[in-house]
């Protein structure tokens, strides 16, 4: 099992009030699954996503990622897990504005301690796989929205992570470009990668092979569609 989450909770204290953003979730995700997490705002899907992405640690419960217990790691250890196991794709792309596409893609490799030569080769390789070889030297402001998201996806894949976490990956794109990006995800999935995606759009969730609906911090529904 790639991801195993057992009775995970995330509780925020606001003043004297305690808010359970994630109120006890059990979940298992296998290698090469394609999962969409859905839910209205306030359902806890973002918080759960942050927990899955090791950006945050749960208040209670356990989380095994790729066979390793990660619910109680230090900041540095979490950074290492994020670097090796997780590829993030954000709604707003989050590329570094001053860096070229290639430099953006190389970033995870730098923090992974990969040598400059190998970085260049691997960045070129993933940029090619998203069809942006000719845009490698361009900065984000010289790229279209779809191209930017492709760069972001290339960056997410460059470290060959265990899972790719996508947070509303088409939220800032027009529908035509959105479809292009989703078909790119299909290709990536077909190549054997595991994808977990947060979205609130049904037609985007339709691309996934499994849809998990959250409500009030709990799983309301978990349907496999393949």
């Amino acid at each position: 099992m790639l991801i195993k989450v057992r009775d995970v909770k995330k509780i925020y204290e606001v003043g004297i009030q305690k808010i359970e953003a994630v109120a006890g979730i059990d979940l298992e995700i296998d290698r090469n699954e394609y999962v969409a997490i859905m839910g209205p705002s306030g359902s806890g899907k973002s918080t759960f996503m942050n927990l899955l992405g090791c950006l945050d640690t749960p208040s209670a419960g356990d989380y095994w990622l790729n066979g390793k217990e990660v619910s109680n790691l230090s900041d540095d250890e979490l950074a290492r897990i994020r670097n090796r196991e997780i590829g993030f794709v954000f709604q707003t792309f989050n590329l570094l504005p001053r860096a070229t596409a290639a430099q953006n893609v190389e970033l995870p490799l730098i923090y992974g301690g990969i040598s400059a030569d190998e970085r260049r080769d691997r960045a070129a390789e993933v940029l090619e796989s998203v069809g942006l070889t000719d845009r490698a030297k361009h900065r984000p402001n010289e790229l279209s929205g779809g191209q930017r998201q492709r760069v972001a996806i290339a960056r997410a894949m460059v470290n060959r992570p265990s899972i790719i976490l996508a947070d509303e990956p088409t939220g800032n794109l027009d529908s035509k470009t959105g479809i292009e990006i989703m078909s790119l995800f299909d290709t990536i999935h077909a190549a054997g990668n595991t994808i977990v995606m947060v979205t609130h759009e049904e037609h985007i969730a339709d691309y996934a092979k499994r849809v998990i609906r959250l409500l009030d911090g709990k799983i309301e529904e978990d349907i496999r569609t393949d």
Partner: peptide, 13 residues
């Protein structure tokens, strides 16, 4: 800073 951290930068980095 947030992006760098998400991509694996440690606090020391």
């Amino acid at each position: 800073v947030g992006v760098r951290m998400a991509l694996g930068a440690r606090r020391n980095d």
